[in-house]
Design a protein around this nucleic acid. Sequence first.
DNA 1: GTGAAAGCGCTAACAC
DNA 2: GTGTTAGCGCTTTCAC
Lengths: 347, 347
Amino acid sequence: MTTRTAHRARPTMHDVALAAGVSVKTVSRVVNGVDYVSAETLQVVNAAIDELGFRRNEFARQLRQGTTATIGLVIEDIGDPFYSVLIRAVEDVALARGYTLLAASSAESAERSRRLIESFTSRGVDGLIVVPASGTDVGLLRSEIETGCTMVFVDRPAPGLPADTVLVDNRGGAMQGAAHLIAHGHHRIAYFGDDAALFTAAERRDGFLDAFAAAGLDVDPALTIMTNPHPESSQDEVDRVLDAAEPPTAVMTGNNRWSVRALRTLRARGLSADMAFLGFDDFELGDLLTPGATVIAQDPAAMGRTAAELLLRRIEGLDDGPHQHIRLATSLIERGSGELPGPFATR
Amino acid sequence: MTTRTAHRARPTMHDVALAAGVSVKTVSRVVNGVDYVSAETLQVVNAAIDELGFRRNEFARQLRQGTTATIGLVIEDIGDPFYSVLIRAVEDVALARGYTLLAASSAESAERSRRLIESFTSRGVDGLIVVPASGTDVGLLRSEIETGCTMVFVDRPAPGLPADTVLVDNRGGAMQGAAHLIAHGHHRIAYFGDDAALFTAAERRDGFLDAFAAAGLDVDPALTIMTNPHPESSQDEVDRVLDAAEPPTAVMTGNNRWSVRALRTLRARGLSADMAFLGFDDFELGDLLTPGATVIAQDPAAMGRTAAELLLRRIEGLDDGPHQHIRLATSLIERGSGELPGPFATR
DNA sequence: GTGAAAGCGCTAACAC
DNA sequence: GTGTTAGCGCTTTCAC
């Protein structure tokens, strides 16, 4: 049997006023804690509020006041640990400053991204933190900025738009990583990165190339794969790289999803202890693998915090200086896999 | 130098109507795609909309219509992979059905949880999916349910409240896990779980005890720790358990944060290949450890999907049957660590 | 210290 | 096909 509760309608200020025998305005004063209200009235009104379970209707307030104290965040995938940590950092900053955060995943779909941005702006967000997807409609972003929605772009830039950006030193970090492998004697390094159309993927690959150039070495393009790590379809390509006539002695990856995939493949081939490995972006338990996974670590929490603080300062008018383009540093964490001599070293 | 864009105010339907030379109502018709509008008028209005960058004000619409097509989700920590996957599943269901999702972390704070729930309900969410924190105000939840906010509780129940719940078979899963270790010859098993005040933590510990009872074995309470895995402060306790006069031959954990902590400790002690390990809740890369981590896996995506579908069916009146209390099954994944004979086995 | 009236931007109801 | 009026629940303005 169902035990359906009788639903009384959500009470309004009008209901509270009626119950307390005062005017709507007085209830408003009590709810907002402004102006003076006699102790007695306060008591009566508060009793009525508790009694009825009154909760102020935010729409009505925001409609009238025109302010929402809300910011939006559009990232690629909440389920990705990199982004989930970033979100949590944004959330903490927002909540501490009294803002509500609306967060959603674009799922790498330009269409879904557009829907989310429209949904957020039509909900009157004061500002938006966006990880622009490759197909994101720049015109839409520009239009929203022009109609007063402050924006901060994270992880990837939105060229030409008047907004702050918070990026990672992808190129420098990747160069440092590749140089580390080269310094350990690796001249043939497989590189598995995401689709080169992605800003971060391209930057990291460039950093990889920089290291070879700096060392005066040639890169074998046959050892590089630039594609989305999700589909298992590219396993053929991975196998082809590892089975090359002159195979790589090390593997470097451009993001943590590729890292997981590459490590699984090495493991399946029994190469974990031989093939050197270095991944861009840290991942939990990287330290517990055998050997530990050497990585170029980003700091997603710092990215989120930085972006949120920048955005709120803009929104609150505390900062009206030129737009900032911040590059956060990466750090090399040596855990063993990147320090291996490779399968063909003389041991 | 700053390049501040001139901000024109966000245009309203009134502005569009003026620009197009029609009435506000006609603009409304075009925006909502209802009723017939002449092709010519449609053209003119749409042109004005694009020209001005008009975006319908959701507050006003929702205020008038009384419906929001929004649901809220209050979990503990977006940064926790278990929850982030759950969120993503809820998000996908919500978006597919045309709902906007508001998601936020309670950060295990009853106060923050209360703020979030009030914030969501005062934004008129049609329903709420909640992972109730230990200190969550049941009175508040009841009051919100009574005023028409449909709720579904996930991961932990909210006893006595008229709502659906989606839980995991914590006790059965933990019992299966412990029985698995016992079957591999372990009679002294350390158990590291979260604070027993947490519903899931208590259920899993009970399942652990069940397995011992079923096997006719005694449990040494000195080998059990029930506390939040976060603070490094309890490392003393962990060490004491592992250094007991008669030490455990296996370690079982009650959640993935304890798993990580326990595995780090075993690794630091050089025990990874000797001490059997079994964790409740799977984690990424568990398969890549040496040996692979044997776990009792939950399916957070299924939990999120199930909860979201239940909630939307209620909201849309497709289901007005009795409240359901769903228990999702767990699955034992053998990867090696749970099948070790333990450090004192004769080899 | 408290109340009455107007209006935020939109849509429901009903004219025309 | 299109326009007019009223009102959602709240805050602002101004009167008492």
